[in-house]
Structure formats: structure tokens, C-alpha cells
């Protein structure tokens, strides 16, 4: 097995008494696409900043490309591409200029940067916007420009902190397509997200993080197999009758999960469970049988939904 790009061992980040990251360990192999999944405030972004060599760890060990970020920050950052949670594109400069100026921070010659800038504008489907003001771009375009900027140094490792948060579905799909291409080209990706579908689409391997600790680790399929059933039946009875119905449904399936607005019944066969619900004399307003997702894994592990 090739040497890992990232090795984190008992990584800790404390702000005063509060431990934002509380002893997490993981490794990321070259070419792998690795996801940190968790709700807001789980410690994902803090972990990203430590891996990005811009936040000094309080404890534990961290090695990026075999180097310690405490001593080799600039060296490590010279090999990273960073897409932060909120865009920090330079609004005083135009689209293409953002790439040019950023490339220079890496000490790359102007000519090379100019050539890459044009390639990346094509990759990000922003060629026509080269001379536009950043402010005039849509949210999706800004994100794509941020990703293009992160690629200007041809990074070995791309860090994406909630890359599609706040984008409409169409913009998300365009972005996923671009990221998938990078993955195919062998770029190592580390991304955080609280979207299940995003994690399932893009990640080879995932750790579920909550309150600064790792709850589980594996491929999306493994996690679903381990922590959930094949299918899920979702039934709604209206908020008034929800609790009462839940009592009568106890014992159905492998287990049930009662949410304020609906009841989830985990089972290998969702349709069969639905028949049992109806046999019990209950008539849900709506019912839905679907495959288990990482959302269910998270619910099982933490007892909470990801997006609250």
C-alpha cells in the first residue's frame, strides 16, 4: 500500500475549555477520495484547517505528505488546493486575475500561471466570464472559480469544505461532475459535507464525525450495511397522531426511529412492513419505501439528523 497523504493520530484542537476536535485519527491514501461527514459544529472545518496547515493543533500528531504542519506550513501548503466553506475570491479583481494572482503566491512563473489559468477557466466552464467582475457571478460559478483557483498549483491534495452548501440542485450537479473528473484523474480529495448524497457520490471512504469525535468509518456501502437495513419505510400520520401510531408500531422491522413528523421503519423488505402497518389497522397519510442512506447511518449513530 502506498504511503498515506494524510496521517492524523489523536488529533486535538481546543479553544479554551472547548474541544472542537477531540482526538480523531484517520489516514488518507494517494488518489483516495475521503469524506468527513457530520452536522454543523462537529469539528469538520477545524479538522480541515489543521490539515490545511493554517491552524496549529493542540494535541496529537499530524503528517501531511510526510511533513509536520507545525514546521513545514508553507511547504505543505504549496502542495494543497483549498476550497473554503465561504468563498474568499478577490472581489477587487476580475475572474481571470483571481487565478493569475493566486498562482503567483506559489512562486509560479507568470507565463505558466497564465497558461494554467486558461485551462482552468475551461475546466470550470467560465471561459466567457474571464474578464467579468467576481460579483457578477452566480453562486455556482463562484464555487467553480474557487475550485479552479485551488487547482492553479496542480495540487497533490484538494481540500473541499462543504463544496456545494448553498447551491441549487443544478449547480451542485455541475460541481459534482467537475469534482468527479478530478477524482478520475487521481487527485486526492478530502471533503467535508453534511449532505449524504454528496458523500455517496464523491467519497470512497467516510468518517462520521460528531462533537469532535469519529463515530464510524468505512465506505458508504459498508456503513449502510453495518448500521442500517437495506430498506427504510417512512410513514406519516400527521403530527397529532404521530406519537400514538409510533407506540402501536413498536416492534415492527429491525428497529424504528420516531421523528417529529414521521416514523422510520428499518427492514430488509419495506413493502412487507407497509403491509404489516396496514394489517395493524393503521392508515398512514403518506408512505415511502426507499433504500437506506448515510442519513440513516447518522441517525442511528447519534440519534440526531444531520441537518437540523
Amino acid at each position: 500500500m502506498p504511503a498515506p497523504v494524510i496521517v492524523a493520530t489523536d488529533l486535538v484542537k481546543r479553544y479554551g475549555e472547548f474541544a472542537a476536535v477531540d482526538g480523531i485519527s484517520f489516514e488518507v491514501a494517494p488518489g483516495e477520495s475521503f469524506g468527513l461527514l457530520g452536522p454543523n459544529g462537529a469539528g469538520k472545518s477545524t479538522t480541515m484547517r489543521m490539515v490545511g496547515a493554517v491552524s496549529t493543533r493542540t494535541g496529537g500528531d499530524l503528517s501531511i505528505l510526510g511533513l509536520d504542519p507545525d514546521r513545514h506550513g508553507p511547504e505543505i501548503r504549496s502542495q494543497l488546493g483549498v476550497v473554503p466553506q465561504s468563498d474568499n475570491l478577490d472581489t477587487e479583481l476580475r475572474v481571470r486575475e483571481n487565478l493569475l494572482v493566486y498562482g503567483r503566491y506559489f512562486g509560479l512563473p507568470g507565463k505558466l500561471v497564465a497558461q494554467r489559468a486558461d485551462e482552468l477557466l475551461a475546466f470550470a466552464q467560465l471561459e466567457e466570464k474571464a474578464a467579468a467582475k467576481v460579483e457578477s457571478l452566480s453562486g455556482g460559478m463562484k464555487r467553480r472559480l474557487t475550485i479552479a483557483r485551488a487547482l492553479i498549483n496542480d495540487p497533490r491534495l484538494l481540500l473541499l469544505d462543504e463544496p456545494t452548501t448553498g447551491l441549487d440542485p443544478q449547480a451542485r450537479h455541475i460541481l459534482w461532475d467537475r469534482l468527479f473528473r478530478l477524482k478520475e484523474q487521481g487527485t486526492t480529495l478530502l471533503l467535508t459535507t453534511h449532505y449524504m448524497d454528496e458523500a455517496e457520490q464523491l467519497c470512497d471512504r467516510i468518517v462520521v464525525v460528531d462533537e469532535g469525535s469519529i463515530m464510524a468509518e468505512g465506505t458508504p456501502a459498508e456503513l449502510i450495511r453495518r448500521y442500517s437495513s437495506r430498506e427504510v419505510l417512512e410513514v406519516r400520520f400527521g403530527s397529532d397522531r404521530n406519537a400514538e401510531a409510533a407506540e402501536r408500531l413498536a416492534g415492527l422491522g429491525d428497529r424504528t426511529e420516531v421523528l417529529p413528523d414521521r416514523i422510520l421503519i428499518y427492514s430488509a423488505d419495506g413493502e412487507a412492513e407497509l403491509e404489516r402497518v396496514i394489517d395493524a389497522g393503521l392508515h398512514p397519510i403518506t408512505s415511502l419505501v426507499r433504500r437506506s442512506s448515510l442519513e440513516d447511518v447518522f441517525l442511528r449513530l447519534t440519534g440526531r439528523s444531520l441537518i437540523e
Binding site: A3, L65, H72, Q79, Y105
Partner: peptide, 18 residues
């Protein structure tokens, strides 16, 4: 491994100019 040493060396070189 050589690959890792390689990555590290590239990084060290990449830090010089900045």
C-alpha cells in the same frame, strides 16, 4: 517509501520561493 519521500521533497522545493 520512495513515493512519499518524493512527495515530501516536492513539497520542500515548493516552499522555497514563497
Amino acid at each position: 517509501t520512495d513515493a512519499a519521500a518524493d512527495a515530501g521533497r516536492t513539497a520542500l522545493a515548493g516552499g522555497i520561493r514563497p
